[in-house]
Design a protein around this nucleic acid. Structure first.
Lengths: 212, 212
DNA sequence: GCCTCTGTCTACCATTTGGTAGGCGGATTG
DNA sequence: CAATCCGCCTACCAAATGGTAGACAGAGGC
């Protein structure tokens, strides 16, 4: 009978790495929260870093699955974007640890960030291709797809995980507040991304708006 | 003759807190980088946390001054937003530590984040009021001003500080790349924020786009 | 010439950290 | 029933951490 201990360890590590941060989470603290001894953690994982790697891998998989699922069911064009954003906000409500971890890993930099990005690469590729196709079809404004993706990512992740800033701004971390933020982000993104249906533009020549 | 040591300490602490993070920066490492002994740091600052507080205060002041300056010189409406964003990107080029610290402090949460936010509050207030006024005047799309501010903040800070993600996306951290990102962010923000000049809307009734 | 104050240092210290060595009980297997 | 293996544990350890105590060198005032 396989022990469930490693899974419990990863659960708690995910939570703690996401909230307190990797550095601020000691193996002892982790063990204490699980009511086991530190050596049990080191029995299942050779080092603290290995715990992080395992957490990243599992989380990246879960994240990927959730988003791919949202993508598979969604319609074309804007509805796809909306489906993904909604999916992220759903995650923010049900599994906030996942998004917190994402943010923490990005901060840690390589090698953790590299691993996470590699695991999410198919998703990134898919999203990138999608944006490119929409721009070519003239439904979305022209941008560097990767940069656009990063901008969307930053906005959404920020709106979802910047708890401290949010509270300073007078937003409480309630479900209602989350819904309001979702609505706002969606409106914002639609104005930012989508071409106004009136102004039709030939797909070949870029519709990149001039700065001046 | 007042010693310049405390300032050197704060300089290095700012750099290290921003890049490695507060937890991962030890007083010994800080001292070593300055070629002084840890006790000299503790002579000028009663504790590591006090160093952080001092760094935050100084950085918040510098940040505030830079942005207020940008605001003072700027014209109305969109030009104001553009001036601020350009100012942030200028900071990203010349004093990246400042923005990295901002991000790190937001992650640390209270009390550090509270202190930072309090110090930046006048700026936040000013920006918030400005957005509100623009919306009332019908030049910008209607949103919750604070949420909109958070979205802008997230986007810009993300585009400027998410080095790991950026590199994973194939962006090099060069000056040229920074300019491209700035152009992209500005285009994006303008589409997101500004009303199309054609569609005039009475200021009283909200122009909030419906979700469905 | 002495005293005091300032800035930095050496010498410690208790605690915490990630990690090693090895033991122990219970289930499985020959 | 003996041997083995699995999962978890107690007992340590060396290094690093934030912080205390106090010495010491130089500058300036009296």
């Amino acid at each position: 009978m396989a022990s469930e201990t490693p899974d419990r360890i990863l659960d708690e590590a995910l939570r703690s790495f996401g909230t307190r941060g990797y550095d601020a989470t000691s193996l002892d603290a982790l063990a204490a929260a699980l009511d086991i001894r530190k050596q049990t953690i080191l029995y299942w994982f050779p080092s603290k870093e290995a715990v992080l790697e395992a957490v990243i891998e599992r989380s990246a998989r879960e994240l990927s699955e959730a988003l791919q699922l949202a993508l598979d069911g969604a319609g074309p064009s804007w509805q796809r974007v909306e489906a993904v954003v909604r999916s992220v906000f759903r995650l923010a409500a049900r599994r906030p640890e996942l998004l917190n971890l994402l943010r923490e890993v990005a901060r840690l930099g390589p090698p953790a960030a590299t691993q996470m990005l590699a695991a999410l690469d198919p998703l990134v590729q898919r999203a990138s291709d999608f944006l490119q196709a929409e721009m070519d079809a003239g439904t979305m404004r022209r941008h560097e797809p990767r940069l656009l993706l990063l901008a969307i990512y930053s906005t959404v992740i920020g709106m979802v995980t910047e708890v401290a800033v949010l509270q300073g701004f007078g937003e409480e971390p309630t479900a209602r507040s989350l819904v309001r933020r979702r609505t706002d982000v969606l409106n914002l993104l639609r104005s930012a991304l989508m071409m106004p249906p009136s102004a039709e533009v030939p797909a070949g020549l870029a519709a990149r708006p001039t700065t001046e």
